[in-house]
Amino acid sequence: QPDICKDYKETGFCGFGDSCKFLHD
């Protein structure tokens, strides 16, 4: 199970976008 993207979880934004290896839940 992939890890949750910390940036996306906390801020709702991730610089990696769809290529981020972490989950954007």
Rank of each mutant, 00 (worst) to 15 (best):
I4C: 13
C5R: 00
D18H: 00
D7G: 10
G17T: 04
G12Y: 04
C5F: 01
G17V: 01
D7E: 13
K9H: 12
F22Y: 08
F13N: 13
Y8R: 04
D3F: 00
P2E: 14
K21W: 08
K6D: 13
D7T: 09
D3L: 07
G15D: 00
Q1I: 15
F16W: 10
G15P: 09
G15T: 07
F13P: 03
E10P: 10
Y8W: 12
G12D: 08
D7I: 11
F13S: 11
F16P: 09
D25I: 01
C20E: 05
E10L: 06
P2I: 15
D3Y: 05
C5K: 04
I4M: 15
K6P: 13
K9A: 14
F16L: 10
F13K: 11
C20K: 00
G17A: 07
S19G: 14
E10S: 07
Q1E: 01
H24E: 03
I4H: 03
K21M: 14
S19I: 04
K21E: 05
L23F: 10
H24W: 00
K9G: 11
P2A: 13
D3K: 07
F13G: 13
L23D: 09
H24M: 10
I4N: 06
K9N: 08
K9L: 03
G12R: 06
L23R: 12
D3N: 08
S19H: 12
F22H: 04
T11A: 11
D7V: 13
C14T: 04
F13A: 11
F13W: 00
G15I: 10
F22V: 05
P2C: 08
S19D: 14
P2L: 15
H24K: 02
F13Q: 09
D18L: 05
H24R: 02
P2T: 15
P2D: 14
K6I: 01
H24D: 07
F13I: 11
F22N: 10
G12W: 03
K6V: 14
S19Y: 05
K9Q: 13
E10Y: 00
S19L: 00
I4G: 02
F16T: 10
K6C: 10
Y8H: 09
I4E: 11
D7W: 03
H24A: 00
K21Y: 03
F22E: 13
C20W: 00
S19A: 13
D25G: 03
C14I: 06
E10D: 05
D7C: 06
G15W: 00
D7M: 15
T11D: 14
G17S: 04
Y8V: 05
Q1S: 07
S19K: 06
D3H: 05
C14D: 07
K6N: 07
C14F: 05
D7S: 08
L23P: 09
S19R: 09
E10M: 15
I4F: 08
D25L: 04
Y8K: 07
Y8C: 05
D7N: 01
C5Y: 02
F16R: 13
S19E: 12
G17F: 05
P2Q: 15
K9I: 13
F22T: 04
L23I: 04
G17E: 09
K6G: 09
Y8L: 05
F13C: 10
K6R: 12
K6F: 06
K6Q: 12
C5I: 02
C5V: 04
E10K: 06
D7Y: 01
K21D: 02
D3V: 04
P2Y: 14
S19W: 01
G15E: 10
C20Q: 03
C20I: 00
K9S: 12
C5S: 01
I4R: 10
L23W: 07
L23K: 10
T11N: 12
F22A: 09
K6E: 12
G15F: 10
G15H: 05
Q1V: 15
Q1A: 09
Q1G: 08
T11C: 11
Q1Y: 13
P2W: 14
K6S: 09
H24Q: 03
F13V: 11
E10H: 00
G17W: 02
K21G: 05
F22M: 15
F22D: 07
I4V: 07
F16M: 15
F22S: 08
H24V: 00
D18C: 02
H24C: 02
L23M: 15
D7P: 09
C20M: 06
H24Y: 04
L23Q: 11
T11I: 07
F13M: 14
G17H: 11
F16S: 12
K21H: 10
D25T: 07
D25F: 02
G17K: 05
C20D: 03
D25P: 09
C5M: 12
K9V: 13
K21I: 10
P2V: 15
H24P: 01
D25R: 07
G12C: 02
Y8P: 06
L23N: 09
F16V: 07
E10R: 06
D7L: 03
G12P: 03
K6M: 12
D18P: 11
F13R: 13
G15L: 10
D18M: 15
Y8M: 15
D3Q: 12
S19V: 05
F16D: 15
L23V: 06
S19C: 07
C14M: 11
G12L: 04
K9W: 09
G12K: 07
D25S: 03
E10T: 14
D18S: 08
C14H: 02
C14L: 04
K6A: 15
G15K: 12
C5H: 00
G12N: 09
